[in-house]
Design a protein around this nucleic acid. Structure first.
Lengths: 215, 215
DNA sequence: ATTACTACAGATCGAGTAG
DNA sequence: TCTACTCGATCTGTAGTAA
């Protein structure tokens, strides 16, 4: 099918189901897609001609059934995207930076702390390990679906949501990678929190290289 | 982004990675997409204008980086398709038909039999339960990724591949739904095989209604 | 080698309107 | 109401060619 009609076909399959049928009017579809009624009419005739839909026109609208051809074209496009976006295990490496991280402050705030504790399954080490990473790799890691730590407000100010991902560090120790909504960090830094003091547990120091694997 | 450029953007993200970069020439892309060099040139300029890619032209080609905007647009399209195609649990119901099914013959052929036994985890009842189902529902069930039973040849004839899906019948008993490559069945019949005699095990008879759930 | 401008052909769009 | 035809405006595509 023409790429420009993917959206329309997707809309139809949502209405009709993968192998079902639906009755719609061209003006309904026009409104939903932003095209004119005339263009939808033409497009439907095109799709029929290409063997992507079956069409039964009446004075109540048009009954549409998607063919196997349409479903399989949509699916093969889906599989290509799935190759990119399905959340496979993903690893990146980086160098440990000095200090405990600014995360020490906000992870200690009671409201956040409660949520971190729940996700980590127990009290956690007060302080984050900051790792210098490749920005692109960090973006890939954080493109997976996050666990959301909700924000809150005090009289003084409001604290935003934080996104976290369960990870393993050096393939052994559970931790979570965290990404504050409004970060003050340089973008190429990844902060992780664990129930362990990671420096002791893994015998790592500033400048050690560690591997973080998203689970 | 314009829908008509989804394919091009997908190609670019495949080359560059989700947050990486790549150097390509417009004529390479032209060849890969079937557009002319000139059209690709124009489309890349359009994508840049829309804020979907960063472009750095040199006499070696064009360096392209996808922006977060492009990735998020692709991803939201992916999520819509995922809603349709991700293989969730799926159930359908149908009426048990008379007889043991023609499957009794081919499941008894040594080559097939060996493969069925492996998938079912043990010797199976000789004979298939045939269930009259809604064709659309059957199509949805069989739109998930199948396990393939490979075909074989004898001197006399060749036997095609068979697709099967692990299922539960009446939410209790494991079975597999089978779909021969060249079926002689009416299309609205679903055949299942189990290590049990399903009629006895589930106390069902001809015309009983059973539920088949894809696992 | 590149990219990209120009110029024109042909596709696509939607307003008006018929059936 | 509905679909869909006509037709002029606009968009899209590419050959030729410049830079």
């Amino acid at each position: 099918m023409k790429e420009e009609n993917f959206g329309l076909v997707l809309l139809l399959v949502k209405k009709a189901g993968l192998f079902g049928r639906t009755i719609v009017s061209t003006s309904q579809l026009a409104e939903l897609t932003g095209f004119s009624q005339q263009s939808i009419s033409r497009k439907l005739r095109e799709l029929e001609k290409e063997g992507l839909i079956l069409r039964k026109v009446s004075n109540k609208g048009t009954e549409i059934t998607l063919t196997k051809k349409a479903v399989s074209e949509l699916k093969s496009f889906y599989l290509e995207l799935d190759e990119l976006f399905s959340e496979k295990e993903f690893s990146l490496s980086g160098k440990v930076l000095d200090g405990l991280g600014e995360g020490k402050y906000y992870t200690s705030l009671p409201n956040y702390k409660k949520q971190f504790t729940k996700i980590l399954g127990g009290d956690f080490f007060p302080g984050t390990l900051n790792i210098e990473v490749n920005l692109n790799e960090k973006n890939v890691l954080t493109s997976a679906k996050p666990i959301i730590i909700t924000g809150f407000k005090t009289k003084a100010r409001s604290f935003g949501a934080i996104k976290v991902w369960k990870c393993l560090i050096n393939k052994k120790v559970e931790c979570i990678a965290i990404l504050p909504e409004r970060t003050t960090h340089k973008e190429n830094i990844l902060e992780v929190v664990s129930i362990f003091n990671l420096r002791k547990k893994l015998n790592i120091k500033t400048d050690s290289v560690v591997e973080v694997t998203r689970k």
